[in-house]
Design a binder for these strands. Structure first.
Length: 108
DNA sequence: GAGATGACGGGCT
DNA sequence: AAGCCCGCCATCT
């Protein structure tokens, strides 16, 4: 478990139900605004072995861009979000500005 | 240590 | 609006 990974997971864990954040937001909140890709990379490695609300993390275009190689695919993420009251279109897009959650705390 | 990878982001066509 | 391209940066091989 690297420090970077710890920081990311720590933020993901604070996302409230029914809200979403972009990979870039998480990267920025831990002090590395340009490491959005790495945030996604960490999500990929999470798999099912986590109780982390990974499905509340989407890209800045308000779209779910998961590849689907893991057990989780875009469809399951869509269901999870809808279960929390988030409206997701058939093309896996949603009104991110409406559900976007702003991190308040900074690093720890 | 060098090159390749990718659940991203932003800019340009 | 949709697609293509380039830059980022922690990991992996």
């Amino acid at each position: 478990m690297t420090h970077f990974q710890t920081q990311v997971l720590q933020r993901v864990r604070t996302i409230p139900s029914g809200r979403v954040v972009s990979y870039g937001q998480i990267a920025a909140s831990i002090g590395t605004p340009r490491a959005a890709r790495q945030v996604g990379w960490i999500m990929r490695s999470l798999g099912k072995t986590s109780d982390m609300p990974w499905w509340r993390v989407i890209n800045n275009q308000g779209k779910i861009s998961i590849k689907g190689n893991i057990e989780h695919d875009a469809r399951s993420q869509k269901k999870l979000l809808e279960a929390e009251g988030v409206v997701v279109a058939d093309d896996f897009t949603l009104d991110i500005e409406k559900y976007r959650y702003q991190f308040e705390e900074k690093e720890s």
